[in-house]
Amino acid sequence: MKTYEVEVRIWLKPSVFDPQGHAVEQALHTLGYAEASDLRIGKYMHLTVQSASLSEAQTRVEEMCERVLSNPVMETYAYTLKEVALS
């Protein structure tokens, strides 16, 4: 068994309006950061998984993202997987 550290990021699809991101972008503009645009707010999740192989871990994490962590109707996700070296 290998141990993997997983980082998952989730955003609303580009086609879906993000009112939180919009409000924060407006706040940045008000504070003088006119250069800021396209601000989107998402979610970040961190987890550890035990798996026999990298490909198995990937399959399982993708399943988690599709079925639970994100709602594919309105969200997209990305993840990274890193093997944890045993000390």
């Binding site: 609303l12 879906v16 309006f17 009112p19 939180q20 409000a23 709602n71 109707v73 309105m74």
Partner: peptide
């Protein structure tokens, strides 16, 4: 119901926050 896929679509934060 939408999360359970008994109905289509999704419900998100109101556009006016």
């Amino acid at each position: 119901l939408t999360e359970s896929h008994l109905l289509p679509g999704a419900l998100l934060r109101n556009d006016n926050l």
